[in-house]
Write a protein that binds this DNA or RNA. Sequence first.
DNA 1: CCCCAGGCACCTC
DNA 2: GAGGTGCATGGG
Length: 299
Amino acid sequence: MERGYLDLDGPFDLQATLESGQSYLWWRADGNDFDGTFGDDGWYVTTARMDETPVALRVRQQNEVLEWESTRDVTPVLRRRLRLDDDLVTIREAAPDDDVVERAFETYWGMRLVREPAFPTLVSFICSTQMRVARIHGMQQALREQFGTPVSLGGEEYRAYPTAAQLAATDESALRQLSLGYRAPYVQETASMVASEQRPEAVRGDAYEDARESLTKYVGVGQKVADCILLFALDYLEAVPLDTWIRKTISEYYPDCEHGSYRQTSQAIRDRLGGEYAGYTQTYLFHYLRHQEPALAAD
DNA sequence: CCCCAGGCACCTC
DNA sequence: GAGGTGCATGGG
């Protein structure tokens, strides 16, 4: 097993980054789910594909350093997936100068967006509809344990997130047994599409609204889920997913951005929240308000 | 029993 | 394009 230490350049908060509902692809090594408190040492686990081979890795933050363990040097994986090269100061400067945005950035300063692999993100957010964060996470763990390839790391046995081919090979009833509910056929059909060369990464380079529209070809993907995939996997930092939380926020703090259609409201709030980095601000607001609902109601 | 959760597909008009 | 409905499952 290899171990390494990665010096952090600028503010970083691993817990906020991994437990803010952006990614459902990491879990705590101590077995506690995200709503519990840390039992011991702060390690998170995930799997990655390096040269088509699944690799397990552990990471924890100790002040200005990320410590990792894996069977290979996973420094490039961490840089990419945790967006360690983002310039948070510049991003924050693009955000509006109002109280709620200030409080959100202040409270979780150091939180990064993630840049996760596209297919697992696609499946995760198909599962996210009408579902709480903790259960979305549980569903991905179930998919991993049921269909993923075994990977070992330092005596521990994990399972990689299943590939499109692995999920395409299953059927609706097997997915329903994992409590995916009505999302089961969506996941299976979408996995089949991706396995037959319709890869979500193909939208890279398209104009933002074209890319969003294009992703809705997958079953179970509407405009909101498409925005999540663009923001958390495909580097479209301007994407602002209009979920129940951000809609409540718009109604409370930015009522002039409310319009009839998703497209128009999206355009207005995107401009308000900082244009090219609007999705970053949205993610701070989402995480902050989801843990501060009384404050929202009191305003 | 109720309501709700990072909405979407499907149907009308 | 806009407007209604049904939808699986578990937790409060």
